[in-house]
Design a binder for these strands. Structure first.
Lengths: 338, 338
DNA sequence: CTGAAAGCGCTTACAG
DNA sequence: CTGAAAGCGCTTACAG
């Protein structure tokens, strides 16, 4: 039914080797033959099978992207950037939402290996360092948005530490001293770094973060809401919360609303990511912006760079991109009365 | 390096045919042999190559999902549902964001064909009906979220017409009679149906939609904002706007805010989709909810159903899922003074 | 119950 | 400049 390389070879009166060469622009083929063969491919609507070509050792032109959840706008935007850059360069991308669950991660990795994809971008929790080390040995890997512990891979992240510092600085300038944090899992480097930068900057001004004012959350909005609600109980609640991503910040906003706490009059909220969510909430969120398009594009470039060079053990690069403070309406000076 | 079927056959002292049979649970193999071979596969960490298996006529266990933009939360949520159902059943999904551009659509389809994926879900504009007809002939196709014109394929959509009616009914009950619509491209069935239902319901109460009060927009927030801004110029602006998706509604909200028009006091906004955006805007959006998880899951089931049956020309099914009105704070009774 | 052989659609030395 | 042949890692009749 579908035309194969044999069909075009027969039609052109040449061998399949010759056809293969014109497809791949290899070897020397006379101009005339080349043109003729192209014409025949066109006429037969011949499309080379990437399956067959992959089996003979070439690329599958498919990349994997492991993230916690494609429905989370942050990862949606990153995925879009990855997809676009990949598509530009001739690669498709398979999306793998892991919910940060080890078992899903292992399943996906196993499947992707069986499909012999050309490389994999990891932006999700990795429970098992062994799995990852093995993976790194069997195909190009790049970490995106977070470090991968104990494994040498290319890495592209936002400068989370700096971002945390900027958030703290902003709150300090507004006069806040009783502040809290809704963080993500401490198993994740980006989360640790944001907290670290935040804390360090506070301490430079002599402000200490109470231990029970740092709450690790899962990655869903509801988790942020619940933890924020608990934190806002009682009269002496914090005057400002730093949320490690927009989703958690949305949760915090909702918790505050339900508790009758006005934002920013009674509580300031600084977020992280600056996805579309930050611009549409009530009130719009002051947020530390991550360069999502650039993160995605750089990850693809790093990944494909590894494909081209033969030496797999080349030095691993780490790219940290600057973040930016976007001030909106969820932060304000602390009340004098407070 | 990596173990192949030959390695396990040699190790087990059998032929590769036998190993293949135990992998695929075909033919009759003695219990003992079977167990032994499984043990060897385990020991060698043997993973069958889906590339090789696909080349011999089996599935690639990969699906394509064509949507306008994965960074749009609506498609993000649908994609997540598609991914989950696919993953459950052993399939990966390749994401293709088309921006509704014909040229991107054609490119993606061509690539997906070359990769011999098992089926494709189309939730994006399709300029060229011929391309689509060809596609339908070469692999299973299902339309998701919109009809595909002139081509017999399984279809799973929300009941857009009914959703449009519900939006109209809600506004009528609130006393609105001077209403407007921010629609998507009229080339898209879902958009037409929403508008049709909306208009019909209005007319049942004797309310006519002015022609210049229906504005088709592209799929980006900015387009909604711009069109809404133009619509809100002048004193006699509509008292309510029906926005055909959450992104456009967010744009409308922003336009109103910039024009100093209070929502819902001076303008009601009803949205469509009920993504996460609807719950976080300022104010939160009254929205017609689409069952995104069910849409995604049903699309996968329909697609894989076609894979299993041999008769490709079986009657095409069309599933329309009910929508639901979610009332939040962007709608209110029209002002008596108005 | 098991295996030899052909074939899927390509690519790649190698020979000419 | 071009082609015959082996091989990629499987599956599937078919024969025994």
């Amino acid at each position: 039914m579908k035309a194969t390389i044999y069909d075009v070879a027969r039609e052109a009166g040449v061998s399949i080797a010759t056809v293969s060469k014109v497809i791949n622009a290899k070897g020397k083929i006379s101009q005339e033959r080349r043109r003729e063969i192209f014409a025949i491919m066109e006429r037969l609507q011949y499309q080379p099978s990437v399956i067959a070509s992959a089996l003979t050792g070439k690329h599958t032109y498919t990349l994997g992207l492991l993230i916690p959840d494609i429905a989370n706008p942050f990862y949606g935007e990153v995925a879009r950037a990855v997809e676009d850059r990949g598509h530009q360069l001739g690669y498709s991308v398979i999306i793998c939402s892991t919910d940060n669950r080890d078992e899903r991660i292992e399943q996906y990795i196993s499947v992707l290996k069986q499909k012999r994809i050309d490389g994999i971008m990891i932006g999700t929790g990795m429970g098992n360092a062994d799995t990852l080390r093995e993976l790194g040995a069997s195909m190009p890997v790049v970490a995106i948005g977070r470090e991968l512990p104990d494994v040498p891979v290319h890495t592209v992240v936002a400068d989370d530490w700096q971002g945390g510092r900027m958030a703290a600085e902003h709150l300090l300038q507004l006069g806040h001293r009783r502040v809290a944090v809704l963080s993500e899992s401490m198993a994740v480097s980006s989360s640790r770094d944001r907290l670290k930068g935040f804390k360090e900057r506070l301490e430079e001004d002599g402000v200490m973060l109470q231990e029970n004012h740092v709450r690790p959350c899962k990655h869903r909005m509801e988790d942020g809401k619940r933890e924020a609600a608990r934190m806002l109980e009682g009269k002496e609640h914090p005057t400002a919360i730093f949320c490690c991503n927009d989703l958690l910040a949305v949760g915090a906003l909702q918790a505050a609303k339900e508790a009758g706490i006005r934002i920013p009059a009674e509580l300031s909220v600084v977020s992280f990511d600056n996805t579309i969510l930050a611009s549409v909430t009530d009130p719009p969120l002051t947020s530390i912006s991550q360069p999502m398009e650039q993160l995605g594009a750089a990850a693809v470039d790093l990944l494909l760079g590894q494909l081209e060079q033969d030496a797999p053990s080349a030095a691993k690069r780490r790219i940290a991109m600057r973040t930016e403070l976007i001030v909106r309406s969820s932060t304000a000076s602390v009340k004098p009365a407070d």
